[in-house]
Simulated assay, not measured.
Amino acid sequence: MAQRVTIKSIAEELGVSVASVSRALNGKGEVGPALEKRILQKADELGYIANYSARSLKHQKTNLIGVLVPDTFNPFFAHFVTKIEELLYDSGYEILLSTTRESLEKEREYLEIMVSKNVTGILAAPVDRTGNISIYKRVKAMDIPIVFFDRNVEGLDLSRVNVDNRSAVYKIVRYLYRKGHRRIAFVESVPNTSMGEERLAGYREAIKDFGLSEEFSLERFGLFIENDVKSQAAEILSHRPTALITGNLVITKAFLQALKTLRIKIPQELSLVSFDDIEWLEVTSPPITAFRQPIESLAMNAVALLKREMKNNESNSQIVVVEGELIIRDSVYDLSSEKQGG
């Protein structure tokens, strides 16, 4: 049996890095023209693209749905996967779950594996808003329906479902502003995702609309659970924000631990709002105000879009935006009443 051609095997043949091969195949222009030409020629020679073309001729239908997420230690994705697995199981489908860990190389390889397993459709939260465009196009060209959730890839006419991230963060800033906060910081985990860019745009728009941009604006990207969160929290606190918006539950948990170590009291010394909600935020001391994404609605819409495209071979993409809810608890200090009293 012939060995499956992968990015890694192409890299080994040419004696170059996996990253260089991935960039060349992505068409992102981040490698030199001569090297890009060598990589594309070798990919053709080894049958990398032909491997996909061969699959498209088989038209083998299975009950397998590919599901691509960044990770499952983020409760949002864990809950989402649980719900779509339940919905798909009830419809006679099984899932092939892969986690990219925010790696374009892993995303490409997992998509390749899904194609080789003859998945009937794919639900994906892409790694990068401009990355791996070519492979998503090739998979779509093989009549494998793809539906994006939470994130999307720009320039691709594919169905997707997500919350209105921009509006959500705008509403959070507005809520904090009405509570008297003028120094509001925003921390998001992953740069270059459509979701992250939309949330950042909402933050910047609100800061500008409420006249806060010149007085104070602090945004940070790239916080991961394995990083030194304590030092990052200390750096942010050195700018003396009165309120902090955390971009997901992984960041929220990390910051709660860091603030406890630094002996920063919530909300007396720092108000906190989490983007994403979970049960344990209700029992922290104090309970944390959070924006709740309707995971069940997101999952139901994503599965419905995919089933529609699988059944009808639907070519017209559809965008579904669902509304979330700001859950008010006790982690935001009311500075407005303090100012009025003073």
Rank of each mutant, 00 (worst) to 15 (best):
Q3P: 02
V5T: 13
I10P: 05
E13N: 14
L14A: 09
G15L: 06
V21T: 09
E30G: 04
R38W: 02
L46N: 01
Y48A: 04
Q60D: 05
K61W: 01
G66A: 08
P70I: 01
N74M: 00
E86T: 07
Y89E: 07
L96R: 03
R108V: 10
Y110K: 01
Y110A: 00
Y110H: 08
Y110S: 02
N118R: 09
V119Q: 08
T120S: 15
A125N: 12
G131H: 11
P145C: 06
F148Y: 08
N152I: 05
N152A: 07
G155N: 10
A168P: 01
K171I: 01
I172M: 13
V173Q: 02
R178N: 10
A185G: 14
F186N: 13
F210Q: 02
E214I: 07
E215V: 10
F221D: 02
F221L: 14
G222V: 06
K230P: 01
Q232G: 08
P241F: 15
V250I: 10
L259F: 14
K260D: 15
L262E: 05
I266M: 05
P267W: 10
F275W: 02
D276C: 01
T289P: 00
I295S: 01
E296D: 07
A302H: 03
L306K: 02
R308G: 04
N312P: 05
V322N: 00
E325L: 09
R329S: 10
S331C: 03
Y333N: 15
S337Q: 15
